[in-house]
């Protein structure tokens, strides 16, 4: 009982927030909710967000609806030392949005060269095959940085974060989250 009481006490001590701007006001919400409510993006364009969602969804099913684009966009808008992105600890130097833009541009350049259309318009099988080649760094004539494997790792991490790195993600897999201090907006 002592343990339960202590944990319950600490849940109330949550600090910090993942803040989205709605109508000029900062609102705490899930990226999933931000996407559903079409909260304006801060850094990425809508077109860039769509391209990012396509790659992320192919890597980690569920990432699109979980709000991966809003997550990445919001995190690219904060100072680097406040960012929660996986690339922060993977030695990618800020500004982080440069990494995503370069990655998306090169992915689509490659897809245009090989299939005559961008990644988002490939079939599911074509997307899967493209990522498989990217994972092992075998797309020829790749214009980096970022390197192919670095993009695979970073985009996969973002997708895994929004789908599985949350209280909601744990609950879906039947795993107790057991927070000392719950993430604000369940992040």
């Amino acid at each position: 009982m002592e343990t339960v009481r202590r944990r319950a006490f600490m849940k109330g001590a949550a600090a910090g927030a993942l803040a989205f701007t709605v109508g000029g006001t900062e609102v705490l919400m899930l990226p999933r909710e931000a996407r559903a409510q079409k909260v304006p993006l801060k850094v990425l364009s809508a077109e860039e967000a769509g391209r990012l969602e396509a790659v992320s969804e192919a890597l980690v099913p569920g990432a699109r609806d979980a709000g991966v684009a809003h997550f990445v966009d919001q995190q690219c808008s904060v100072p680097p030392h406040e960012a929660l992105l996986g690339i922060r600890i993977a030695n990618v130097r800020p500004p982080f949005v440069n990494f995503y833009r370069a990655a998306l541009n090169e992915i689509d350049r490659q897809c245009q060269a090989s299939h005559g259309k961008p990644f988002a318009q490939l079939t599911a099988a074509e997307q899967h095959a493209f990522i498989g080649t990217m994972r092992v760094g075998k797309h020829p004539d790749w214009k980096g940085p970022p390197a192919q494997q670095a993009i695979y790792g970073a985009f996969r991490t973002d997708g895994v974060d929004v789908v599985y790195g949350t209280v909601e993600g744990s609950e879906k897999l039947g795993v107790p989250y057991m927070a000392h201090i719950l993430p604000p907006t369940r992040w």
Binding site: G16, N91, G165, I181, L182, P183
Partner: peptide, 29 residues
């Protein structure tokens, strides 16, 4: 009270990258 139980939020307590890296197997920072 700022130490949030989350792999994502836990990245805040690590160093934001500000190094140049070289060599075949770089541990980074």
């Amino acid at each position: 009270n700022q130490l949030i139980s989350s792999e994502i939020w836990g990245r805040r307590i690590k160093h934001a990258p500000r190094f140049q890296l070289a060599g075949r197997n770089n541990p980074g920072h």
